[in-house]
């Protein structure tokens, strides 16, 4: 299991594994299915390309919309998959750093 900070975020994104994702998700009471994995893979690719997490919920939704279209890129859909603050929950599970503008 990769090292995590006090908010549960993986310290080094390179140490993340799919197995770790399942464990982190379980902490949030989420059992990962294909829909989750689609978003997780999107976030991993996003981080590899831009070296930054989507900084807020709005920009998370916007980025997903840009890449995967309207059915995935809307806040209800992402809120259902990743309850709480979707950008935060999804980035935590995907092994990305904490989005800077999420409280």
């Amino acid at each position: 299991m990769p090292a995590r900070n006090n908010e549960g975020f993986v310290v080094n994104a390179n140490e993340w594994t799919p197995a770790a994702a399942s464990i982190i998700a379980a902490d949030d009471g989420i059992k990962l299915n294909e829909k989750h994995w689609e978003i997780i893979e999107f976030l991993r690719l996003f981080y590899k390309t831009h070296e930054v997490s989507p900084p807020s919920n709005r920009l998370f939704v916007k980025s997903v919309k840009e890449a995967l279209g309207d059915t995935r890129g809307n806040s209800i859909y992402l809120m259902t998959l990743f309850p709480g603050t979707p950008a935060k929950t999804a980035c935590r599970i995907a092994g990305l750093p904490r989005p800077t503008n999420c409280l």
């Binding site: 390309t49 831009h50 070296e51 840009e66």
Partner: peptide
């Protein structure tokens, strides 16, 4: 540090 150029490449996606 993280690449500022790579960070900037997200600008069009963010609007």
């Amino acid at each position: 540090q993280k690449s500022v150029a790579k960070n900037l490449s997200a600008a069009p996606i963010f609007g």
